[in-house]
Design a protein around this nucleic acid. Structure first.
Length: 199
DNA sequence: AATATGATAGTCT
DNA sequence: GACTATCATATTG
């Protein structure tokens, strides 16, 4: 059985379920991508979320339908890529933080300037650069095909087998920093940062 | 290995 | 006017 593409129903569930379920799935954009190994979850009643203050011009996309991309610029330099979750209007999303690259390695190396393979997608900004994601992709839908057999540009493929998922605090935030809302593929060498040792 | 710092721009108070 | 869901480089041990 080849892995099946995830459809909108997958993303329409609570982000608390979607985010850990994304670990081990394969994300592909224009034939370039890899296995998702690191995800963080954000939701409206979360002070660290862009949606916390409601649908501001930037965060409005987070309140759109499930299964679309929310792309924002971070620290003036980097682009970061989220997948909108839950019903339209909820303001929840999963931040894709790292991939284990498996497809289109050559394209990624070109875009990333020839860094070591394990750093190609190890972090949200790096991942966006490797995949060629930028602000023009904001609101772009996940679609395995566009009908008529036309393959979609962006797809997520379900994982073939269960994988070990670990939860730990999110990275680079100052509010609600203690919530264990970062999910990683345990032991992956492609994480943006290792899982902190349990206190 | 760990920590510090600068780059750089949009959003919100 | 302050803040940020980051990364690369430089410095130290």
């Amino acid at each position: 059985m080849a892995p099946q593409p995830l459809n909108q129903d997958f993303f329409a569930r609570p982000v608390a379920e979607v985010a850990p379920d994304l670990i081990g799935c394969t994300l592909v954009l224009d034939g370039v991508g890899g296995v998702v190994v690191e995800v963080e979850r954000y939701q409206q009643d979360d002070p660290a979320s862009h949606s916390f203050r409601g649908p501001t011009p930037r965060a409005a996309v987070m309140f759109g339908p499930p299964g679309i991309l929310y792309v924002y610029r971070s620290h003036g330099i980097h682009w970061c890529m989220n997948l909108v979750c839950e019903a339209e209007g909820r303001g929840a999303a999963a931040l894709i933080r790292a991939l284990a690259p498996t497809m289109g390695l050559e394209r990624m190396r070109e875009r990333r300037g020839g860094v070591a393979d394990r750093l190609l997608c190890a972090g949200p900004g790096r991942l966006a650069q490797a995949l060629g994601v930028d602000g023009s992709m904001n609101g772009f839908p996940v679609a395995a095909d566009l009908g008529g057999g036309q393959p979609g540009r962006l797809a997520l493929l379900e994982r073939a087998a269960p994988v070990p998922v670990a939860a730990c605090p999110r990275i680079g935030i100052s509010r609600a920093a203690e919530l264990p809302w970062r999910f990683v593929l345990a032991g992956s060498p492609h994480l943006s940062r290792p899982v902190p040792k349990a206190a």
